[in-house]
Write a protein that binds this DNA or RNA. Structure first.
Lengths: 151, 151
DNA sequence: TATTGTTATACTCTATAACTATA
DNA sequence: TATAGTTATAGAGTATAACAATA
């Protein structure tokens, strides 16, 4: 056992707990974790397919299917670039944005019972420590919008 | 914006980061996140199918497939209960245990770069806060073994 | 030639419904 | 009747390989 093993285990355990919450809430709107992140990502960006795939750590062919299914539901749409005619960019629709905001609210509410276990003084402390671990420097793009960039 | 929104966002962002690490390491051994958790769970238990499904928050039919594929790889095995002949219990094989331990080590190593960003004094503090949030009371069963039980 | 994106294919993960065997 | 587990089916998510269009 190395000295930080307990910390690593706590991080993994907490993360699985968080994913269970997100999975449950997403399922309530027929959204997988990946679709949840896709919507979060698009709230403040209009990336091309290749950029999206890189953000999410997925193959471009996987992105085609993901965007296809989201587009079929009217949550996102595809646009053709003006300059490079090979490029397709993706943006969120008003319906998609509405859903993304509703889901973000639900997630925050669902997490409250967990964070309520902390003493009020501990909450900003935990925020600071988590930001140190997972990095605010990469940029925070909403509750489901963080990228996978490595440290 | 409620006061704890920043904390909730940090929890979600960090969790996605952790899942990306686990997904990458699992993929290196042809293990999905779910198979990773299954192996972790079985390190110190020999549950029946229904218990496993409850632990993982999955349908029993999903468990059948999951265990089937893990069994085909020689990582787990099924046993028939002595008392109730309907019951099937699942246990990890020596090969499965070896793999689970190797993966756990890899995960801890992969997380070190993240936790190394913290001042040494902050590390036990973060452990304590995460334990408060996600609960040690439910029991910790290894790095991929925590259950989905709600607060 | 290289890049962007889609399509074809195959496999895992997942749930629902129907089924078998046991209680 | 009720419970434990499997199977059949269907759909989403994923990657690899082959492809078309554009650069």
């Amino acid at each position: 056992m190395r000295p930080d093993d307990a910390l690593h285990d706590a991080l993994v355990r907490t993360s699985f707990r968080m994913m269970a919450v997100l999975t449950r809430i997403g399922a309530g709107h027929d959204l997988s974790l990946t679709q949840l992140r896709l919507l979060g990502l698009l709230r403040d960006r209009r990336p091309r397919m290749t950029e999206l795939a890189a953000f999410l750590g997925l193959d471009k062919s996987t992105m085609s299917g993901l965007v296809e299914r989201a587009e079929r539901r009217g949550l996102v749409a595809r646009g053709k670039s003006s300059e490079d005619r090979r490029v397709v960019d993706v943006f969120i629709t008003p319906e998609g944005r509405e859903l993304a905001e509703r889901v973000q609210e639900e997630i925050r509410s669902a997490l409250a019972p967990y964070t309520d276990r902390l003493a009020p003084d501990d909450r900003p402390a935990l925020t600071r420590l988590l930001d140190a671990v997972s990095g605010t420097t990469t940029g925070n793009h909403g509750i489901t919008g963080s990228s996978d960039a490595s440290p």
